[in-house]
Simulated assay, not measured.
Amino acid sequence: MKFCSVCGHAVSSRIPPGDNRERFVCDNCGTIHYQNPRNVVGTVPVWEDKVLLCRRAIEPRYGYWTLPAGFMELGETTSNAAARETLEEAGARVEVQSLFSLLNVPHVHQVHLFYLARLLDIDVEAGEESLEVRLFSEDEIPWHDIAFPTVGQTLRYFFSDRASGHFGLHTGDIFRPLRDG
Rank of each mutant, 00 (worst) to 15 (best):
C7G: 03
V151R: 04
H33P: 06
F159E: 04
S160K: 11
A83I: 06
P149Y: 00
A81Q: 11
E48S: 06
T86Y: 08
S13E: 11
N20D: 13
S12E: 13
N80M: 09
L120P: 01
E88S: 02
R56I: 06
V111S: 09
T86P: 04
D27G: 03
T77S: 15
L99C: 12
P106E: 09
W143Y: 02
I58D: 08
P149M: 00
C29N: 07
S98Q: 15
V25L: 03
T31E: 15
L135T: 11
F148N: 06
E59T: 08
A117P: 08
C7V: 04
S13V: 11
V25A: 01
D139R: 02
T43Y: 08
S137I: 01
V105H: 01
R162K: 14
G63P: 03
S137C: 01
F167H: 13
M1V: 07
H9F: 06
F136D: 06
L155N: 02
M1A: 11
G75K: 12
T78M: 14
H9N: 13
L116R: 15
L53Q: 05
S98E: 15
F167E: 08
L178I: 14
R134A: 15
V11G: 03
F136M: 07
E48V: 07
A57E: 08
Q110H: 02
P177N: 13
F100N: 03
D27I: 02
T150M: 10
A147K: 06
N28F: 13
E125I: 04
G18H: 07
P106I: 05
V46K: 09
N80C: 02
H33F: 07
V94W: 08
D49S: 11
G42D: 11
T171N: 04
D180W: 00
Y64A: 12
V124H: 07
E85V: 05
I58L: 05
G30N: 01
R23C: 09
V151Q: 00
D139H: 03
L155V: 04
N104W: 14
V46C: 04
E48Q: 12
L131E: 14
H112D: 00
V40N: 14
V11M: 12
E85Y: 07
Y62P: 00
T86I: 07
Y62C: 05
A163V: 03
T31C: 06
E22C: 04
D145Q: 08
V6Y: 11
Q153N: 01
H170W: 09
F167Q: 06
A147Y: 03
V51R: 09
G75V: 06
K2Q: 15
S164C: 05
L103R: 08
